[in-house]
Design a protein around this nucleic acid. Structure first.
Lengths: 145, 145
DNA sequence: AAATTCGTGCGAGATTTTCGCAAAAATTCT
DNA sequence: AGAATTTTTGCGAAAATCTCGCACGAATTT
């Protein structure tokens, strides 16, 4: 993708907030015609600046009321496990997010479950492995953004 | 919202993956008519099951190449600071996500910046406050989901 | 078993997006 | 600088998509 100008940035800003905005709505806020806005958005999608569009589903209504952040530390002698780990996490529906990090821990996971029972089962199943040295669970009380 | 049936769950699953799917595409995958799908989706939005729709913008192209997770510990004697804190975090563009948690730390932040310099400036500006006891920065090497 | 409620498919009408075109604006070349 | 080229714009028509009223069928209530 070439360069993004101020119009593109404004469009991205708006669509990050609400991706269902119509061409006319965008036109109003951006100061271009509807067609011009939509053409630009189309291009942003094609070139991968906009990777995808997703619906944000309320965790509550979805029955997943509990969110936990886990700091994971692996045994230092099994670096091969990292890639396998990531792939497995990607498949687990409980794992909403997974970051591989530097520092005192190796992974930061965001876990979404229905209740404590489900979380216990998850921990039992996933974290009680020989190559996992230690994990720290932080229950989320509230979130922004 | 009353109860969600298997059609609703399937629709949510699909729209979480790609919220730009058309009525016909949904109809194919779900096994209802286009109109029925769109009516259901409309209802899911109205009742708040679908909270919002957002465009996912590539952090790379957006120039924010660096992601850091911060574990924040506040001084125990300033519980009033928590609400203020959250409100301030909500306004900062660098703060992509903010969770208030229990355990050894109080907040888990996900920070998105261009480079180390910008991160340093952010840390300096935000974390060097008397009511912040300690912070731990985890640079993100890679992420899933 | 009739009445009510609820969700469906169909199809018309409304809205939104896409696309071709000519003109304007920006960029490159001489 | 000024001509030539490329890019992007706005307009408007055509295509695609969504919304909504309607009649019907299934499930639930009375």
């Amino acid at each position: 993708m070439a360069e993004l100008d101020k119009f593109d940035y404004r469009l991205l800003e708006l669509l990050q907030e609400n991706s269902r905005m119509t061409g006319n709505e965008l036109a109003d806020k951006v100061g271009l015609s509807s067609a011009a806005c939509l053409r630009r958005v189309q291009r942003l999608r094609e070139t991968g600046v906009i990777e995808r569009d997703v619906a944000v589903v309320s965790p509550k209504v979805f029955g997943k009321r509990m969110m936990v952040i886990v700091l994971l530390t692996m045994e230092r002698d099994r670096p091969d496990r990292y890639i396998l780990m990531r792939e497995e996490f990607a498949k687990m529906p409980e794992v909403v997010q997974c970051h591989h990090v530097t520092g005192a821990h190796d992974f930061v996971l965001r876990i979404q479950v229905s209740d404590m029972e489900e979380y216990s089962a998850f921990v039992e199943r996933v974290f009680h492995e020989p190559y996992i040295k230690r994990y720290e669970s932080l229950a989320v009380l509230g979130s922004l953004k």
